[in-house]
Design a protein around this nucleic acid. Sequence first.
DNA 1: AATGAATGAGGGTTCATTCAT
DNA 2: CATGAATGAACCCTCATTCAT
Lengths: 212, 212, 212, 212
Amino acid sequence: MTKTANKTRRAQPKEVRKEQLIQATIKCIAKHGLSGTTMALVTREAGLSMGIANLHFESKEKLLLETLQSVTDEYAAGQAAILEGEKFQSTSARIEALLNFDFSARVIDKNKLAVWFGFLGEARSRPTYQRICSRQDSLAEEKITALFQSALDEAGDKVVDAALLAAGYIALVDGLWLNSLVDPRRLPWKKSARAARHYLATALPKHIKPGK
Amino acid sequence: MTKTANKTRRAQPKEVRKEQLIQATIKCIAKHGLSGTTMALVTREAGLSMGIANLHFESKEKLLLETLQSVTDEYAAGQAAILEGEKFQSTSARIEALLNFDFSARVIDKNKLAVWFGFLGEARSRPTYQRICSRQDSLAEEKITALFQSALDEAGDKVVDAALLAAGYIALVDGLWLNSLVDPRRLPWKKSARAARHYLATALPKHIKPGK
Amino acid sequence: MTKTANKTRRAQPKEVRKEQLIQATIKCIAKHGLSGTTMALVTREAGLSMGIANLHFESKEKLLLETLQSVTDEYAAGQAAILEGEKFQSTSARIEALLNFDFSARVIDKNKLAVWFGFLGEARSRPTYQRICSRQDSLAEEKITALFQSALDEAGDKVVDAALLAAGYIALVDGLWLNSLVDPRRLPWKKSARAARHYLATALPKHIKPGK
Amino acid sequence: MTKTANKTRRAQPKEVRKEQLIQATIKCIAKHGLSGTTMALVTREAGLSMGIANLHFESKEKLLLETLQSVTDEYAAGQAAILEGEKFQSTSARIEALLNFDFSARVIDKNKLAVWFGFLGEARSRPTYQRICSRQDSLAEEKITALFQSALDEAGDKVVDAALLAAGYIALVDGLWLNSLVDPRRLPWKKSARAARHYLATALPKHIKPGK
DNA sequence: AATGAATGAGGGTTCATTCAT
DNA sequence: CATGAATGAACCCTCATTCAT
C-alpha cells in the first residue's frame, strides 16, 4: 500500500494527481496483470477515491494509454541521453553504456517491464497499444542502427548489415527481458545481461569485450 | 467466421468438439486479445451454442489453459522431432533444421503466436500460465544447450558458453517473433529469420552460414 | 449411489421407471435440498440417462409434483389403514396405533420428511404444492377429529373441542418432525415421540398413558 | 412494489440500504419462495439497481443469511424481553405474555414466517441455514424450559418433565405457524392461538386458563 | 424406449462510469 | 477538486429441455 496522498485530501495540481495514478496503475498491472487491473484497484493503490481516475483521465482506456506512454517515454528518454547526449563520445562508450542501461536497475524494474509486456501481449488486437509500442521500437531501431553502423565503419567491416544487427539486438533484449521477467529462476537477470553482451561482443569484437 | 458446423445439431465425439473449441479460442485470442476473448465470442466463432464450452471444458479458465497447452504442445512436438528425431544426423543439419522450423509457416502462424504472447503478457500475475510457459522454455533450453554444446565441441571452441548461447537463441527467437508479430512492417518475418540466422552464423561459423 | 438399473438398459414398464425416478428424486431432495435438486442429479442417482426424466414425466415440475404426491400418498395410506381399517377396534387402540405410526421408522424416514418440509417451505408461493400439502392435512384432520371425538365421548368429556385437539396434534407432530429433522441432537426422535404421547396422554388420560 | 426511493440516485448510509434490501428480500421470499428469489427481483422490489445488493452484501448467499438472521434476531429479541425482562414478574404473567407474543401480529407476519420456513425447508442440506435456525431454537428452549420448571415447581408438580413440555410447546408453535401459514382457511390463526393456549392450559392448569 | 450431446434463457457477479454531495 | 454510493451492461456459468441417434 503506497499512500502518498495526504490525509486531508487537499486539491493537488492536475499533473501531480495524474502521475500518482499512473504509478499506481503500473504497480497494479505488475501485481494483477493488465486484465486484472481495475479502476477500484488502481485508485485504492493510489490511496484515492474511486471517481478520481475518471476525473483526471477521461476513461480507463486513456489511463492505460498514458501509463504505457509513461513507461515507454521514460525508457526512450534514458536511451536518448546515451545515444544522443554528449556524455559519451566514442562509439565504444555509447554501446557499452547502452548495454549497461538496458540491464540497469531502473530499466529491468519488474513493474515497468510487466506493463510493457502486458500491453505488447494485447497489442495485436489493439491498434492503439500497437502504435505506442511500435513507435518506441522504431525510434530505438533508427538510433541503434546508426550507432552500430558507426562501429562497423570504424572496424572496417563491410559485410555485416547494421540494420539486421540492430533489429537483432532489440529483439534479443526484448526476449531476454521477457524470459527473465516470466521466470527469473530459469534465466537470472545476470545471465540475461551476459547473453546480451555476448551478442554484441561476437558481432562487434573491436568495441565490446565479453568481460564481466 | 468459420461455420463448418451444420445447422442441425449433431453430436460429436468429445475430442472433436474440444479441438474445435480450442481452434476457435486461438482465433479469438488473435482477433480480440486474451482479455477480449469471451465465451460467447469463442462459441460463436466455432458456430456452436454458448453452453457448449462449459460442457466440454469445466470453465473458461480450463478452456484457456488447454488452449495454451495445445499451442505449446504443438511447438514442442515439432521441435522434439528435430532435436531428438532420427531424420537429422549431423549437428549442422539439426541446427539448420531448428532455424528453419522456428521460422516456418506453421510456427510463425500469427494466431498461435498471439496466443503465446497473450498468455506470456499475463504470466507474471498468473502462476498457472507461468508454469506452462516456463516448462515449455525449460524443455527447449535443455535440448538446445546440448545441441549447441555438440557444435562447440566439434568446433573445438572451449570459450563460448553453450548455455548462454542457448538462452540467447531462445530469447532472440522470442523477441523476433514478438517484434514481427506486433509490427510486421517494421520487422518483416524475412528479416526476423535472417537475424536469427545471423546470430547462429556468428556464434557457430563452422556449422551455420549467413546464407540467404 | 443406487444403481438398480440393469447394465443392459432394457426397456422397462413405464411404471417401474417412474417409481425408480421418484425414489431417486426423494434421495436428491434429502441430500441437496429442493432447490439443489437438478434433473442431472436425479437421473444420475437413478443410474439412468439425462433425457429419461422428461420422457416419463413431462417436465421437472411434474416429476417434483408426483414425488410429493408419492410421499403424501404413502403416509395417507398408512394412516388410513389405522383410522379406517379393521385391524384396530377400540378407540384406544386406534389412537395408540396412530401415535406409534407417526413415529415409526417408515414415517420418520429422513428422506421422506425432507421432501415434505422442502415442499412445505415453498408451498406459500406455489399453489400447486400448497394444494397437495393441504389436501393431505385436511384428510388427516377430518379423520383424527372423528377419532378424538369418539374418545372424548367415551370419556364423557364435553368441554374439550375435538377439532382443536386434532388440529393441535397434527401441528405438534409436524413441528416435532421438523425440529427433529433439522437438529436431531437438540430434539432426538425418542424425545419427539414422548412429547407427542405426552400431549395425548394429558388431553385423553383415559385412553393414552404417558408410558414408555 | 415499494418504491420509496426517489428517481434521483441518492447515497444512503450503509445500514439504511442494507435494511432496505433485507426487507425487500423478506417480501420476495414470501412472494416467490426462497428458490424463486433472484437478485433482480429483490433489487427491483427495493426500487434499486441490480448491482446494489452485491455492493452491500458480498453475494446472494450473504444477503440471504443476513435476512434469515434478521428475522430470527427480531423474534429472539421480542422473546427475550418477555422471558428475561422486568416487565413481567409472575410465572403466570410471563407464560401468558409468551403465548400472546407467539401469536401477536408482529410474529405471525406472513412474510417473516415464510422466510423462517423457507430456510427451514432447506436447512438439512445447508449447514449454514441449519446453524442459524438451530441456535434460535436452542436459545428459546433453554429459557422456556426454565420458565415451565418454575411453573411446575409452583404447582408442586413433580411428575411432568419441563424439558419435554418446552420442546413440545416450541414444536407445537412451529407446527401451528406452518399449518396456518400454508393454509389459513383450514387452520385460521385464531384457531392456532387457541390450540397453543389449550396445550399450556392442559399442562399448566394453575397458571394458564383455556380462556377466549 | 433410451441416450446424452447440444441448446440458450436466465441466474449471480463484476466493474467502468456517473453524479449528488 | 474530490468523494464513493449507485448504476446497469456484459460477463461466466447452470441447467431444464430437446432431439439425432
